[in-house]
Amino acid sequence: MSWSKLANEVLEGYVLTKEQAKEILHSKDDDILSLVNAAYEIRRHYYGKKVKLNLIINAKSGLCPEDCGYCAQSIKAKTEIDRYTLISKQTIVEGAKEAKKNKIGTYCIVMSGRKPTNNEVDTVISAVQEIKSEVEQIKICACMGLVSEEQAYKLKAAGVDRFNHNINTSANHHANITTTHDYDDRVETIENVKKAGISPCSGVICGMGETDDDIVEMAFALRELDADSIPVNFLHPVKGTKLEDLNELTPIRCLKILALFRFINPTKEIRISGGREFNLRSLQNLGLFMANSIFVGDYLTTAGQGAEEDYQLIKDLGFEIEDNPFETESQTFAETY
């Protein structure tokens, strides 16, 4: 397989077959540099050398009734984490101001739980309105669990730019990961935010015992959903969770997965997300030749590396931080919907 030739075909509009996608995962480890370079041809075409920075604020932690096997915040998890109700509006606003000072393009307000109450939605709405009036050129992403169409419209009116709700895994593997909600519940939330005119963000967690076929199905499912931003998480097993003993990923395996998502979703923002430091380790730099976005700082319940290390990583690669998160979208949401 000539990965470079396949990349050029993708740039001309070709859509890989599922068998070709699986070949990426089955490629020889010795060929990893040629695969990365081919995926970079696609990334460079749409995003140049720009890297988008994202920051999470854990606005509500723990207290979640769901049984997701990977999650330290699940009611089933026996973990020692901070547990608290929704933080104050002012704390959310101040977090956005600090994020902007640190070159963050997208500020992600994340809440644990199955779905938000109307009061919680109102608090986030009020915070977003203040952020939009006081902080220039920062994109707001909300991640609040399952939301109704009505709630989605309210969030859009407040100025929420993007809403994250991951499919996490394939429809086939979903019941092995959680039983307290269905795969279709997740898809419904994504469709609700799309109807409201909010840019959809949806991604996956790899390394949860899924098959190669499952990973291919995830990539194509997100293509079908037309998610604008795709966070690719790699399981960072946490003691006390159902998946605490799973540690099946290698750095090269992670690179192949990133290449797969770039080939299948060529125009989309691909973000290396949770588990980046734990799984990619010394090969994090190669990941950015395929992904064009990362989280900076800590994740919800696991630690990330220092922000200065990420800034240095980007600089060493000859890449540059995206100053204006709105200016290099490969395709605006308005054009699509």
Rank of each mutant, 00 (worst) to 15 (best):
S2G: 09
A7G: 03
E12F: 08
L16D: 01
E23S: 15
H26F: 15
S27Y: 08
S27W: 06
V36P: 00
N37V: 11
A38M: 00
K50N: 15
N58I: 06
S61D: 08
G62R: 06
C64A: 13
P65A: 13
P65H: 03
G69L: 10
C71S: 07
Q73H: 10
K78C: 07
E80P: 07
I81E: 13
T85G: 15
I92M: 12
V93F: 07
G95K: 02
A99D: 06
I104S: 01
G113W: 07
R114S: 13
P116C: 10
N118I: 14
N119D: 12
E130R: 08
I131Y: 05
E136Y: 01
K139Q: 09
M144V: 03
S148Q: 06
S148K: 02
S148V: 04
Q151N: 08
A152G: 07
V160T: 01
F163L: 07
N166S: 04
H173A: 04
A175F: 06
D184Y: 13
V187C: 07
I190H: 07
C201D: 04
I205E: 02
G207T: 02
G207Y: 07
I215Q: 04
R223H: 13
R223S: 10
D228Y: 11
P231Y: 04
N233E: 06
H236A: 15
P237I: 10
T241V: 06
E244T: 11
E244C: 09
D245I: 06
L246S: 10
T250K: 12
R253L: 12
L255P: 03
F263P: 00
P266F: 09
T267E: 14
T267I: 09
G274D: 05
G274A: 12
G274Y: 02
S282W: 09
L283Q: 08
M290R: 10
N292A: 13
S293P: 03
S293R: 07
I294G: 04
G297F: 03
Q305T: 11
G306N: 15
A307W: 11
E308Y: 13
Q312T: 10
K315L: 10
E320F: 15
N324Y: 13
Q331Y: 09
E335D: 14
Y337A: 05
